[in-house]
Nucleic acid binder design. Sequence first.
DNA 1: ATAGCCTTGAAG
DNA 2: CTTCAAGGCTAT
Length: 429
Amino acid sequence: MIQITQNSTNLMGFPFSNLDQNCQDGKKLAKVPFNFGKCKVCKDKATGIHYGIPSCEGCKGFFKRSVEKNEKYVCYFGFKCEITPKQRKRCKFCRWKACLAAGMSFEGIKMGRIPKIEKERARFSIDSSSNENDDDDTPREDASPPINSDSSNSQMVSPVYYSNTNSTDREPQIDTQEQNISFNFFESSSNFFNFQSILDSDLEKNRLIFTILRDRCYQLYIQYTEKYEKQYEKALRVINKIEGSLVNESIPKKVLWENFLKETFDHSKSLYAYAKQLPGFDTLCSDDFLKIINSNIFIMFGLRTHKLFIDGEHYLIHPNNVQFNRNNMYKTIGIDLTNRVLYYHAKLSSLNLTNQEISLLVPFMLTSTKSDFVDPDNIKYMNEYFKQALTYEFSLNKRTSSFISQLAQYLSFTVEINDMAMNLKYVDS
DNA sequence: ATAGCCTTGAAG
DNA sequence: CTTCAAGGCTAT
């Protein structure tokens, strides 16, 4: 359980220089409000220790509202908005991140007065923060003009760790019973998703890293599935008979094949661009990067389009508006592969994965690729981070061990599906 | 929705 | 008792 203690860094760095203001000359002077310095989130005047850190009333309230209402935010300006008293309202996403980065937490709440010893200790640590640039309140130029303020789509990043605000239930519960779950794919012996490893590691330290990984991956995932999100909405309209069926019977096999190639080509191109932006992927040399991409073309296509598999049917719409339904799949990629794909997706959708989970599965799967890489250690290292971020995400969503072993089993299908798809050839018949 | 002010209750 | 942060209230 994460706890902010007296020794915690959250209490370091207060400007306690005016501690004795009220008892100067042995007289009781009029009350001077204690100087808590600047808000660690936005640099405004701090009014006290709120949720573990010196912060202003605004950020205090913002943090509270965010957690209470399980607000979901998204940044439209590039994830690095400056949080100042003037600009803090502009981007909730970055403000929320700043709150976390500064150490705001419900675990850190403390009622009553701060013990003298604690104040003394904090006083000693002033010098550690005195080199902070205190004298510059001018709001820095914000290089994030409000482009694309279309926030109508509701896909946003969840800023909240806690699934609810029930006080006993805030912390992600990691069931120690579930510590030896192996994630058996790619190699039967690999011990993926060992819960113990996350328990052993310093969760408090890594929590922020996981959150940033998660948010970044999620933003990218949403961006690169936008096209399919529209198709999904259309599929729902078709299923609910709001729109007529998409199926255009008797499409020539050759046309279907060309559609398939075009779709695959477009997907590969955007997968390349997508993966380039994933955290850590810029550290891969181009050989390794390409190897990873090429080994995962169809696995990634499956993850990107997973929502288009509904009740055993496929609602992908190819570039020339032809639905790649079961029948057209048969004709294009063969009965065996079609059945495998549909079976895999039926299983996958039974797990009701969240978008956050899928978006972390993407880099996790990519870095799980087995091949002879130039720098295998780097890939292994990245894989470890994504694995832990994913495990953390699972624990937040209260996923059970059977969920994880099922997911592992279903994902293991993808290797063969991918290989089969890569080896497809057009045969005229 | 935000943020300043006020009340409440915990804790030294 | 006092001090303090959380949470409520309410004018913007």
